[in-house]
Each structure stands twice: as structure tokens, then as C-alpha cells.
Simulated scan of single mutants.
Amino acid sequence: MELFAIVIMKVDELYVRSLSAQIERELQLLHIVESEWTIDYEWTESHAFIRLEAMLSEQEAPTIRNQMMPSLAGVLADHIITDKESGILRNLLMKEFKYDAIEDLEAIEGYCKQSLHTETGLEDLPVLNSSFGMKRRKQVLVEQLMLALEESSRLSLDGFLLFRLQDYTDELREVAEYAIDEYLMDRQYQEFISLLQYFVYIQEAKIPVVHLIHKGGHEFVILNDRLELIDANEFDATFKLEVLEKDINFEDMIVSTLITVSPANIYIHTRDPEMTVIKTIRQIFEDRTTVCSYCRTCDIYLGEAKKQDQLSP
């Protein structure tokens, strides 16, 4: 019989107890505790560490090791994703992308989380060809952790994160780049919306009412208070568009027309009030807008609906 030990070093004191408990639960599920494994954790002046040890015969040591390595690696991978990943991302944003304002960091991290906290990651997004979802990230970490544990029975988590995870860090960097692009686009969009809101605010109303009829998809009709097409000679009053490559062009055309007309009130007749362009119009014109899901005008242009008459400001 000989002492067989694995030491996980450089564990944050904040997590050392919970991590030890998770490792013990995993070993219990494998019935490895029956082999008289002990799990302990200690602190030194610089860091905490977890020690797993057992007295094993030369014959049983390889079998026990092969049994426990995937589970141990899985626990450590979950710990990295849950407790360390956000810190790695913030470090990337601060050191490589030079963001230091808390407001910017928190906003960008929010976009990162939308991508990272999914099963498939960003593979469905056109800007990235990535399948770095949660399952994939854990798989990468488990593989690298098992390699590290096969090389040595002493694993420094700090060193592992710093030197053994280049592919993992590269993927997080890709996510950060995507998140920054989304953040900058959203900020520019909000600035543009604020400018339009101000322009609408200072502009006097030219006509009392506009009825914006959303027939579905990207097909809109703009009518006056008498339900007549608004001066089609001055601007394109009817919109019968195919799906455009960039929605922003489509939105600009409708918003530009409404701003040119400058109505005191806009009644939006639609079966899809959550459509992006409709939400944009409501944001720009604010209390001038009323969304109608069913009324007599809706009945004429959109057909019958199951809902009763309902106006939402």
C-alpha cells in the first residue's frame, strides 16, 4: 500500500469549502469514498488548497485514478465557468480592450452573458462561427484539466488558468469582441433615438392624426384622420417592402415619413406590437402614440381578430 494524493493549489478562500464539498459529493456518487479517500482543505499565508489522498495498492491505484479524474475535472470545470469566468472576461475587457468605466464594463458583460449562458453559444449568430456554449466550454476545460492532472498530481488553478487555457481564452476574447460591437451599436442607436426624440419634441405638429397600418411583415400604409393616403407626391406614403437585408433602412423610411408629417397623434394598428420598428416609433414619439390591437380600422385593413377592442397607450 502507498499514499496516493492529489493537491489542488491556489484555490480562492471564498470557494475552498464549497469546492471541497462538491468534490466529495462526486466521489460519493462513484463510491470511491469506500476506498478510504480523505478530502481536506487548508490555508497558507498566500493561498488555500484542497488535498485528496488515500492508501491504495499498486494494482488498484490506476483504476481508481481513471474513475475519479473525469469527475474531479468536471467539478473544477464547473467552478471555473461559474466562479472564475466573469473575472477572466473582465480582465480581458480592461487589459486588452481598455475599458475601465464600471458602467461600460457591466453593460458589455451583460452582452457576454447573453451569449455564454446558453447551450450553443454564438453559433447561430451571423457575426461569429462559434459553438462555444456552456457544454462546449466545459468539455474544453475538462479535457485540459485531465491532461494537467495526468502530468502531475499537483494542480495550481492560477497557473492552469494562466498558461493552459489559450484556446478557452481566445474563445472568450471572441465573445468579448462580439459583445463590444453590440454595445457600441446599441449606444449609437440610443444616441440616435435621443436625437430624434428631441427633434420631434421641438417640432410643431402639422396634422392632427396619422393612422399607421401594419398589414404584416414589412408592409405598412400611412393614412390621415380621414383614412386617406397621405400626400403620396411629397413622400412615399405606402410601404410594401420585401424583407430587407438591413432593418435599419426599413425603419428609417417609416420614421422619416412620420417625422416629416409630424402628427400630433399616431395610431398604430398592428397584430405585432413587439416588432422592432413599432417599438422604435413608440420610443421616438412617446406619448403621441397609441397601439391598437383591434378596432374598426383594424377590422377593415387587418381583418377580424379574436381580441376585443383594446387600445394601449
Rank of each mutant, 00 (worst) to 15 (best):
N249R: 09
T238D: 15
I284N: 07
T238V: 15
I254Q: 06
I278E: 04
I284E: 09
V277G: 02
V261Y: 14
F250A: 05
F250G: 01
I284Y: 10
T270F: 01
D272L: 04
L227A: 08
N265F: 11
N249M: 06
D236N: 15
I266C: 00
I266M: 00
K240G: 08
H269T: 09
P273M: 00
T260N: 12
E245H: 08
V243P: 07
R271M: 07
T260G: 11
R271V: 03
L244Q: 13
S256A: 14
I268L: 06
I248C: 01
S262V: 03
L229P: 15
R271L: 08
D247K: 03
I254Y: 05
L258S: 02
E242D: 13
M275D: 14
I281L: 04
V261K: 08
S262L: 07
S256E: 11
E245K: 11
I268W: 01
E242K: 12
P273A: 03
A232G: 12
V277P: 10
E274D: 12
R271H: 12
T276K: 15
T257K: 14
K246Q: 14
E274I: 00
P263K: 04
R282W: 01
I259Y: 02
A232I: 05
D252S: 14
D247S: 08
I278V: 11
Q283A: 05
F239G: 00
F250I: 04
P263M: 00
F250V: 07
I284C: 10
L227G: 02
T257E: 12
N249D: 13
T260V: 11
L258H: 03
T257D: 13
T280L: 15
D231I: 03
S256N: 09
H269Y: 07
I284A: 03
F250C: 02
I248L: 05
I259E: 01
E234K: 14
E245L: 06
E242L: 11
L258I: 05
E274P: 01
M253E: 10
I248G: 03
I268G: 00
R282A: 04
D247N: 07
E251M: 06
S256W: 02
N233R: 14
M275Q: 15
A264G: 02
D272T: 13
V255H: 00
I254R: 04
L244F: 07
N233S: 14
A264L: 09
F250H: 08
L229R: 08
D272R: 08
M253N: 04
E274T: 11
